[in-house]
C-alpha cells in the first residue's frame, strides 16, 4: 500500500515518525510559515505508521537541519527519523538523539528560576529520560512539565 500521495522532493529533508499531533510544533521548530518558504513543504498528520500506531511526517525541500534543530525535534518526538533526500532518494537516515545535557533549546518552566531573570546564561537541562523526554533544570533542579510550550 502506498502510504500517501505527496509531491516528491528532489533535495531536502523528511522528518518521519513524528509523534502524532506534533507536526505543527515541528514546523514551529523549523521556523516555517507561509511567508518565508519558496519551496515545497508537505505536512502529513495522523497517518498510519508501519512501526506503531499513528504518526505525523514533515517534508521540506531544499533544507538540511542543524544539530540544534534536530535536538529540539527530539524533545517533542523522541522517535523521529531524519531522512536526507538527495536527487529523490534517501541519501542518509538517522534517528534523533538527545545529548545527556542540552543547552539553549528550551526555557525553564519555573518562573522563579534564575534563568528566567535576565541573567546572561542559557537555560540548560540534564536529560534524565529520552522517551518520553524528562528534563531537569541544572539551575533550579525542577523537571520541565511542558516541553513544547517552552521551546526556544
Amino acid at each position: 500500500m502506498r502510504e500517501f500521495k505527496v509531491t516528491p522532493i528532489r533535495n531536502g529533508t523528511v522528518i518521519d515518525h513524528i509523534n502524532s499531533g506534533q507536526a505543527l510544533n515541528v514546523l514551529r521548530i523549523l521556523g516555517i510559515n507561509e511567508h518565508n518558504v519558496d519551496s515545497t513543504v508537505s505536512l502529513l498528520m495522523h497517518v498510519p505508521s508501519k512501526k506503531t500506531g499513528w504518526k505525523d511526517v514533515v517534508k521540506v525541500e531544499d533544507r538540511e537541519l542543524d544539530k540544534q534543530t534536530v535536538d529540539k525535534i527530539a524533545l517533542i518526538s523522541p522517535k523521529a527519523t531524519i531522512d536526507i533526500i538527495r536527487d529523490f532518494n534517501v541519501a542518509e537516515k538517522y534517528q534523533v538523539r538527545l545529548s545527556p545535557r542540552i543547552r539553549n533549546l528550551v526555557h525553564c518552566g519555573n518562573p522563579n528560576c534564575i534563568t528566567n531573570k535576565c541573567e546572561p546564561v542559557a537555560p540548560e537541562f540534564d536529560v534524565e529520560n529520552h522517551d518520553p523526554p524528562m528534563l531537569r533544570c541544572i539551575y533550579c533542579d525542577r523537571t520541565l512539565e511542558d516541553i513544547s510550550g517552552n521551546l526556544i
Binding site: 528560576c113 534564575i114 531573570k117 541544572i138 539551575y139 533542579d141 525542577r142
Partner: peptide, 10 residues
C-alpha cells in the same frame, strides 16, 4: 542567599 531558584548554581 537569593530569592530565585538556581541562583547559587549560576
Amino acid at each position: 542567599r537569593h530569592p530565585h531558584e538556581g541562583a547559587a548554581r549560576l
